[in-house]
Simulated assay, not measured.
Amino acid sequence: MPPGPSIVVLPQPPGLPEPLPEPDAQTLRLETVLGTLNDPLRLTIVRKLLLERAEFDHPCGWFGLDRPKSSLTHHFRALREAGVLRQRQYGLERRSEVRIDDLRERFPGLLELVAAWTPET
C-alpha cells in the first residue's frame, strides 16, 4: 500500500497561552472521537490542519469555511471537547491545532486515516 499524505508536524513555539479546557490524553475515548469526526465538516477541519498548516495553530478564518460563526464555534468546541483539537485564546481570537501526539498514542493509525480521507466535492 503506498504511503498516504504527510501529516505536518511543527514544533511548539515558546510563550503560548494556556490551552482551553480539554480532556486528558489518558481519558480520550475512541467512540467519542469517532462520533465527533462523523461530521464531514469536522473531518475537513482536522484534515486541513493535519496536511496544510503553515503555522503552529490557526484561527477559524484560515480554514475558508463558508459557515456562520456560531456554527463554526459549535464544531470547533465539539472537536476540542472530544479531545481532537487543542485551542488557545489569543485576545479575542481562538486558534486550533490537532492533538497529534495524544491521538497517535491513544489511537495509532487514526490520524493517517483522516489524512488519507478524500472529501466529496
Rank of each mutant, 00 (worst) to 15 (best):
L85M: 07
R53I: 14
T32C: 05
P108S: 08
R80E: 14
R67Y: 15
P17I: 07
G91T: 02
P17T: 09
P5W: 06
F63A: 09
R47W: 05
D101L: 06
V33H: 04
V46R: 00
A115F: 00
M1H: 13
F63M: 09
L79I: 11
L34S: 10
E52V: 11
R95T: 11
G4A: 09
T118E: 15
L51Q: 01
P19V: 06
P21V: 05
V33Q: 03
F56I: 04
D101Y: 00
A82K: 06
E22C: 04
L111R: 13
W117F: 10
V98M: 03
P23Q: 05
R88Q: 09
P11R: 04
P68S: 12
L28A: 08
R86H: 02
R80C: 11
S71V: 10
R67S: 02
E112F: 01
H58W: 10
R86E: 09
R53V: 08
T118C: 02
S70H: 02
G35T: 07
K69Y: 02
G64P: 02
R77D: 05
Q87T: 04
A78D: 12
L37S: 04
A78E: 13
A25C: 15
A25Y: 10
I7M: 00
R67H: 12
L92W: 11
S6V: 07
P19W: 09
P11W: 04
R99H: 13
I100R: 06
E22T: 05
R80T: 03
A25F: 03
L72H: 10
E22L: 07
L85K: 05
L72T: 05
D66T: 12
E52Q: 13
E105L: 14
G91I: 01
P68T: 06
E18W: 02
R80P: 00
Q26Y: 09
D66P: 01
L103D: 06
I7V: 15
L34T: 11
E81Y: 03
R94Q: 14
S71A: 06
L10N: 08
S96A: 15
R94G: 01
A54R: 15
